[in-house]
């Protein structure tokens, strides 16, 4: 328990330092750039004002659109979380069985097409995959599966909701990495002495190996992918008109909406560092003895 608290505080401190660093850099940058936001040009005072706004989650109003930033950014944040978490989940669901399958020796000859498939999927850039899927699906179902907000629904809501998640899940490059990692790790564990010994005793090796060999690398790889997946989400949001943070950030950049951009950056930092924190805690939970 004490270790949990210790890790938590260490990571929280990391997060805090990073946020201060990033916001300070942003504040500096936005002061040099043309455009206006409240607190600009007021030096340290303006910066502390900005920090207070960010840490109390009272983001104020956007000076460009005159709309309440909290009301814009939180729904977008939620949408992006749904997209990224959904796609990570999907990647794991696809990749883990392929990895296990290919590590399990008996199926080696049958598994290589799957492995090749996973590599091909991972190398197709998301923006291309997105258009391709849009084209194929609309061609064969007669509906264009882009995101429709409530109230103006036309077409198939479930399809519109699932497709972007599937595309990001396939295209975020983590499938091939997970497959490669699992198959090599699993093979290593399964050929280790204790596995051979237990196999000689007639016990099933696979599932215990899965537990021991791959959970830790799997967790590290998934969480370390979070920043890239968020990056991919920007493109998927674009193609499927998904109203998330990436689209919002793009629009805010075009409109030069600095207050909104600061908030979006802040939330992304929170997201990425929050992922790291979760990773540390999860690792600790799985293997409490490791230093």
């Amino acid at each position: 328990m004490i270790r949990f608290v210790k890790v938590f505080f260490r990571e929280a401190l990391n997060m805090l330092l990073l946020i201060i660093g990033v916001t300070a850099l942003l504040y500096l940058l936005f002061n040099i750039m043309p455009g206006f936001f409240p607190g600009k040009g007021e030096g340290l005072f303006g910066y502390t004002q900005l920090l207070r706004k960010l840490f109390t989650f009272q983001f104020g109003t956007s000076i460009i659109t005159g709309r309440d930033i909290n009301g814009i950014v939180f729904p977008a944040f939620r949408n992006t979380i749904v997209l990224t978490v959904g796609s990570i989940f999907f990647s794991i669901v696809i990749a883990v069985p392929i990895g296990i399958f290919s590590a399990y020796r008996r199926f080696k000859t049958y598994s290589w097409p799957l492995v090749i498939f996973s590599y091909i999927m991972s190398t197709i850039p998301v923006f291309y995959l997105g258009y391709l899927v849009l084209y194929i699906v609309s061609r064969y179902t007669g509906v264009l599966p882009i995101y429709y907000p409530q109230g103006s629904g036309r077409g198939n809501p479930l399809l519109s909701f699932m497709l972007p998640i599937l595309v990001l899940g396939f295209g975020n490059e983590s499938i091939s990495e997970i497959v490669r990692l699992i198959s090599t790790e699993l093979e290593r564990v399964m050929h280790s002495d204790y596995a051979v010994a237990s196999k000689a005793r007639g016990e099933s090796v696979l599932w215990s190996s899965v537990n021991e060999g791959i959970m830790i690398p799997l967790i590290s790889i998934v969480f370390s992918k979070i920043p890239f997946i968020i990056g991919g989400a920007v493109i998927v949001e674009h193609v499927f008109n998904w109203p998330g943070m990436g689209r919002l950030a793009f629009q805010a950049t075009l409109d030069r909406d600095l207050p909104l951009l600061i908030v979006i950056t802040f939330l992304s930092v929170l997201c990425v560092r929050g992922g790291m924190l979760l990773k540390e805690l999860a690792l600790l939970y799985i293997n409490p003895h490791e230093k």
Binding site: R67, I72, S152, P243, Q251
Partner: peptide, 10 residues
């Protein structure tokens, strides 16, 4: 209404 994040205007 103007939906928050998608900015769709009704």
């Amino acid at each position: 209404s103007q939906e928050g994040s998608s900015a769709e205007v009704v």
